[in-house]
Write a protein that binds this DNA or RNA. Structure first.
Lengths: 363, 363
DNA sequence: ATTAGGATTGACACCGGTGACATTTTCGAA
DNA sequence: TTCGAAAATGTCACCGGTGTCAATCCTAAT
C-alpha cells in the first residue's frame, strides 16, 4: 500500500521557514516531515540517511531532494538513543604536555569536521585506583562511538583489556606494538632517537648525555634505544652516569641537567627525551654559565612550538602530532562506513636542525 | 491506584549484575527497572532524578535506595531527546594561544567533573563568512546545554546577537563590559597593564615601549590603556613611535621588537601585550646583541608556562585562566539548578616579577 | 502468462526518558 | 466527622529516530 498523504497534510510542512510567521530557523524538520513530503515511510528515509544499499535509486533521489529542500539533518540524540551509540568521540588523555594535547585535539577535529561526530574531552589520572572504572562508566553512560588514546593511556594494558570487553571502538597512538591488539597509530620513536644520536655524533661530539622520560612510558625506552643504536654505529657508548631521568617535565629537565653538569667530566651534548626537558636543560646550562650551542649542544624531541621560540631555537625531532590525531580519528571513523581496511598507520619522525647544536669547540 | 507489580516481574530485574550469567556490567538498569522495584511510576522516578520538590520524603528515600542498589544512571541521550536539550557544554574558541585554550579547558573540566555534562570542542574561524551560521547549525543539531566563549569570540557581537535568538545559554569571558548583555567572566586587563607600567616605572625606566595585540581585540585596548595610565601617574608618556602592533603572535613580536630597536632612540624596556609577543621580543633583542635584563627589560602578559621556561624567566602579568574557565562553567551550570544568582564574576590580574626586568644601567 | 526469489518498502514496537494534564492522597479547617 | 485545596503520584502521548520482520514489487525463468 502506498503512502497516500493528502495535500493538506503536506502543505504546512513543506515550508518550515515560513511556519509560525516569525520563527525562521526554529523548529527543524524531522524525519517524519521528510517522509510525508517524499511519500514514503520514515523507515525508508532512515535507510537513505544511513546509506543503505537497499533503496531504489529513484526513491533515493526523491528523498534526497526533499531532505535538501527542507534542510533536514537527523537528530543525533534520537539516533543515539535508538542505536544505543552516541556520536561522540572521546579523547582519553593524561599527557602532561599541553602542546601535545592541543595538537592531537586539532588533528582529531580536522578529521571530524563535516561529520556528525563531536569531540569530547575525557582527561584521566592513571594513578587513581578507579581509573579504569571511571572510563568504563563514562562509556556506559555516554556510549561514545569510539575513543582515541594517546600516550601514555595508550600503553595502559588493563585499560585496553577493559575496553575490549566494553562496547567501544578505540584507536591507540603509541610508539610500539602493544600486547593487546587493536587499531593504532604507531610512531617510530626509535628512529627519532637514532636521528638525534646520529646528528650529534656527526657534529663530532663524543661525550654525549641523555635525559630520558619516566620508565613507565614506552616511548622513553624507544627513544633511548634508538639513540644508543646510533651512538653505537658511530662507535660511541652512552655511559650509565650520562643517562638521567627527567620525568618528561621542565623541572625534571632542570634537575637532570644539573646532575649531568655537576659530574667530573660533563657532557658536550645532551639529548633530551622531549622538548620540555630540553627547555629545562637550557636553564640549567645557563645557570652553570655555559653557552648554547658553543659549549653545550642540546637536542629535544617533539618539536612543540616552544622549540622555535627559545633562544637559540631548539634542534629537535618532530613528530607530526596533528596529523597523527587526524589519522587516529580517520581510522576510528572507518568503521562508521563499514570499511575497515587499515588497522595500523605508521609515522616517522624527522630531525629539525636549528640553533642549539654545533660542532664541539665552536668559539 | 497503586502500582501492583507482582514478585515474578520484579525478581529477574532486581539483579542486573547477575543477569546473563557472564555479563556483569552489561545491560544498565533503566528508569523502568527502578520504577518497578520501587513500586512507583517512572514519572515519579523521573521527578526524583530531577530533584523535583513535589515528592514525599519517604518516596524519595525509597527510590534513591533502589537507584543506589541498581547503580542506575539516567541515559543522557534519552533525556536529551525528551527535553530537546543535550548535556553538552560547547567551548567555542578561536584563540591562537594553545596555552590559553588548554587552561580554559582544564578549568571547565574541573567544574564539569561529577556532573552529567560533557565538554565538546567547537573551534571556529571568525574570518569565515558563515562563521555565525556554522555555530547556529551546531546549536540546532546538538542542542548544547550551553556555550562558553573565551576571547576573542566573546567579543563577537553579531554572534552574541544570534545566540540570544537561539535557544542556548552562554557565558562570555572578556576584559570589558560588552554591548550585548549576558552572563560573563570579566578580567580587569586594564589593571594588569597598569601593574606592568608601574613596575617598569618603579624600576626607573623612562624610555618604555609597548607591543600590543590586534586592534580588533578589546583586550588590546584595555591593556594599553591601563599601561598608559600607570605611565602617566609616573609622569611618563608612551610616545606614538614606541607603540607597535605584534598581532599577539610570536612572529609578530619579533618583528615589532625589531622595529622598536631600529629606532634612533631604542627603548630600555618593553611591555608586550602577551607572552607570545614577549617571547618574540626576546629573540629580536638577542639578535640585536642586547642582554636581558641588563640592557633591556621585558614584561609579558598571561603568564603562560613558557614564561617560566625562558631564560631569564619572564616577568609577566598573570590571569588565572584555569580558574576563569571553571568559573565560567559554574556560572553556566547555575541555570541547571534553577539558581541564577550571579551574572558576573570578576578576576584581577597580578604581576609576577621574574628575571626579565631590572633597573636600567644594571651591569 | 505464471511464478519463484530477490529487491524494496512499510508497519510497528521500542530506545529511555519528559511534558501536560488527570487522578488520588493527605491534611488542616470547618 | 466532613470537605476542599494543596500535595503527591500516575497516565499517556511523544521526543526523533532505528531494528525486526512482514508485505509488496519486480525481474528473469518456466
Amino acid at each position: 500500500m502506498k503512502y497516500e498523504a493528502d495535500p493538506e497534510d503536506v502543505e504546512p510542512i513543506s515550508a518550515p521557514q515560513a511556519a509560525g510567521g516569525e520563527a525562521v530557523l526554529r523548529g527543524k524538520a524531522t524525519i517524519n516531515d521528510v517522509a510525508r513530503l517524499a511519500k514514503v515511510s520514515k523507515k525508508t528515509v532512515s535507510r537513505v540517511i544511513n546509506e543503505s544499499p537497499f533503496v531504489k535509486q529513484k526513491t533515493r533521489d526523491t528523498i534526497k531532494a526533499v531532505i535538501a529542500e527542507l534542510g533536514f539533518t537527523p537528530d543525533p540524540q534520537a539516533r543515539a538513543l535508538a542505536r544505543r551509540k552516541s556520536f561522540l568521540v572521546g579523547l582519553v588523555y593524561d599527557n602532561p604536555s599541553p602542546q601535545y594535547v592541543v595538537n592531537i585535539q586539532r588533528g582529531i577535529l580536522d578529521a571530524l569536521e563535516g561529520t556528525d561526530f563531536q569531540l569530547v574531552l575525557h582527561p584521566c589520572d592513571r594513578s587513581k585506583l578507579d581509573h579504569v572504572a571511571r572510563i568504563q562508566s563514562f562509556i556506559q553512560q555516554h556510549k561514545p562511538f569510539g575513543l582515541i588514546l594517546p600516550p601514555s593511556v595508550s600503553e595502559d594494558e588493563p585499560l585496553a583489556l577493559a575496553l575490549n570487553e566494553a562496547d567501544v571502538d578505540y584507536v591507540r597512538i603509541a610508539s610500539v606494538e602493544l600486547d593487546t591488539p587493536s587499531r593504532m597509530i604507531r610512531t617510530l620513536d626509535g628512529d627519532g632517537g637514532a636521528a638525534a644520536g646520529r646528528h650529534l655524533a656527526d657534529l663530532g661530539h663524543r661525550n654525549i648525555a641523555h635525559i630520558h622520560g619516566p620508565l613507565s612510558f614506552r616511548s622513553t625506552h624507544e627513544r633511548r634505544a634508538g639513540f644508543e643504536r646510533a651512538l653505537a654505529e658511530a662507535g660511541l657508548v652512552l655511559r650509565p652516569e650520562m643517562a638521567v631521568e627527567g620525568g618528561y617535565t621542565f623541572e625534571g629537565g632542570v634537575v637532570a641537567a644539573e646532575l649531568l653538569l655537576a659530574q667530573p667530566n660533563p657532557p658536550q651534548a645532551i639529548f633530551a627525551g622531549n622538548d620540555e626537558m630540553a627547555t629545562g636543560a637550557y636553564v640549567a646550562v645557563r645557570r652553570a654559565g655555559f653557552r648554547i650551542p658553543e659549549d653545550i649542544s642540546i637536542v629535544g624531541f617533539d618539536d612543540t612550538p616552544i622549540a622555535g621560540r627559545l633562544w637559540p631555537a631548539l634542534t629537535t625531532v618532530r613528530l607530526p602530532i596533528r596529523e597523527m590525531g587526524s589519522a587516529a580519528a580517520t581510522l576510528l571513523l572507518q568503521t562508521a562506513d563499514g570499511v575497515t581496511t587499515k588497522k595500523l598507520i605508521t609515522f616517522s619522525p624527522e630531525i629539525i636542525v636549528r640553533g642549539s647544536t654545533a660542532a664541539p669547540g665552536t668559539p
